[in-house]
């Protein structure tokens, strides 16, 4: 069993980390996970598994992470507070650690009204910052929330999300600081298209000395087409795509738009590398895991570091 998070090792070693995203299938087929796993093997350090994203019922994140473990990969268990109360959340954290899952990403989750179960009760017993607090308590104090001791504390590398593009900007930085104080070890950001705004957020974070206390992985998503760009800009909350990028995608014939999307993604990574305080990249190629290999190769992020397993 994996003793330590590969993601943590890479970051501890001072290397730029690379993570990718794997959305579980809307069904019970394990092959869907293994197929995506093979596309990402050797290209990234760890693989995020989304937790019923956009509130659509999918294979559980915990189970899909278990499948990745069995394939010898390092999963990041995404956990949203929408569907489980603190009893279930803590129970899942223990189960995840027992299975060898070493990374957890604490999220609020997309609201249930967006998905295919709009009549569901939204739980939201904890919020994402409180989940970080609870996970840290379990790991560092060896107790559940409230103080009851655990027979064995979970081993966790705790992560959280940040969206530099949502409003109001000042609160975004306050919230980042709170996530760090709550105990997050790493941050994966919302996908970056608007570099100016991202830099503004990073400057504000640096003014407060935040990047010294947390590993910030900048999120990127390759655009598949101008239609997708438009959809994301207009319909997906928290996405900010500047006009010049929209024009660039629209200015390319349809059959070359995928390539242009990858070009933009690679250029974005190159520019992000120059921003002080960035420790890695989180590549969310939505249902397009094939693109990740080319992106990391062209962004000079290969080979991925490897360490001898104990």
């Amino acid at each position: 069993m994996r003793e330590m998070s590969q993601l943590k090792r890479v970051l501890d070693n001072g290397d730029m980390a690379v993570t990718a995203e794997c959305g579980p299938p809307k069904g019970a087929d394990p092959e869907a996970i293994f197929k995506k796993a093979e596309l990402l093997r050797g290209k990234v350090d760890a693989i995020n598994v989304t937790d019923n994203q956009t509130a659509i019922v999918r294979m559980s994140s915990l189970a899909a992470c278990g499948l990745l473990i069995s394939a010898g990969l390092d999963p990041v268990l995404q956990v949203v507070v929408r569907d489980r109360n603190r009893i279930a959340l803590q129970s899942d954290i223990l189960g995840a650690s027992a299975m060898g899952i070493r990374n957890i990403l604490c999220l609020s989750g997309d609201h249930q009204s967006f998905g295919n179960q709009p009549q569901a009760m939204g739980v939201f017993d904890l919020d994402s910052i409180q989940l970080i607090q609870v996970a840290k308590t379990m790991r560092d104090e060896g107790t559940v929330w409230g103080g009851d001791p655990l027979t064995k504390a979970p081993e966790l590398f705790i992560g959280a999300a940040a969206n530099p593009f949502a409003d109001p900007l000042e609160l975004r930085v306050i919230r980042l600081a709170k996530k760090i104080r709550a105990g997050t070890n790493f941050i994966q950001t919302q996908c970056v298209y608007n570099l100016d705004r991202f830099e503004q957020w990073m400057n504000m974070a640096r003014d407060r000395g935040l990047p010294e206390h947390v590993s910030i992985l900048a999120g990127v998503t390759p655009l598949k087409s101008s239609g997708m760009a438009q959809y994301m800009r207009d319909r997906v909350s928290g996405i900010d795509i500047p006009d010049e990028l929209m024009k660039r995608m629209q200015g390319v014939p349809k059959n070359r738009q995928r390539q242009e999307g990858i070009n933009i993604c690679v250029e974005t990574i190159q520019r992000l590398k120059e921003i002080q305080g960035i420790r890695g990249f989180h590549i969310m190629a939505i249902e397009w895991e094939e693109a990740v290999g080319e992106i990391v190769a062209r962004a000079d992020l290969l080979p991925r570091p490897s360490f001898d397993q104990d």
Binding site: V81, S108, F124, S128, Q130, A166, R175
Partner: peptide, 10 residues
């Protein structure tokens, strides 16, 4: 989302 430490990213 009943957040006590909001806002969310949306």
């Amino acid at each position: 989302k009943n957040l006590l430490n909001g806002p969310c990213g949306g």
